[in-house]
Simulated scan of single mutants.
Amino acid sequence: MPVSYAFNGKYVIAHSKEDMKISMMRKHPQVCFQVDEIEDYANWRSVIPA
């Protein structure tokens, strides 16, 4: 299930359909959140906000 998100400079705010992923994030809010941008196999990057 896709996750829409926003970053306000301090927090990542996530929104998605209620499923196991969202349930686990609510139970354990100190999660790691990774964002991927993929053009093709040779052109991609990942970011993990600190």
Rank of each mutant, 00 (worst) to 15 (best):
G9I: 05
S23Q: 12
S16P: 05
A14E: 08
S16E: 11
D19G: 12
I38P: 07
D19A: 06
V35I: 15
M1A: 10
K17V: 13
R26K: 13
V47S: 07
V12L: 10
P2G: 07
Q34G: 08
E37A: 15
M20N: 11
P29I: 01
D36W: 12
N43H: 13
K21V: 08
S16F: 03
D40P: 01
P2H: 02
P2K: 04
D36S: 14
Q34M: 07
R26H: 03
Y41N: 10
M20I: 05
P29H: 02
Y5S: 05
P49D: 11
K10R: 12
W44T: 02
M1I: 13
Q30E: 09
D36N: 15
A6C: 04
Q34W: 00
M24V: 08
W44F: 09
E18S: 12
Y41C: 09
S4T: 13
D36Q: 12
A6R: 12
F33T: 03
M24G: 04
Q30T: 05
R26Q: 05
D36Y: 14
K21H: 04
E39I: 12
V31D: 09
I13G: 03
N8D: 15
V3N: 03
Y41S: 12
A6N: 08
E18R: 10
D19C: 07
D36T: 14
V3H: 04
A50C: 05
A14T: 08
H15C: 14
A6S: 12
S16H: 05
N43F: 00
H15A: 15
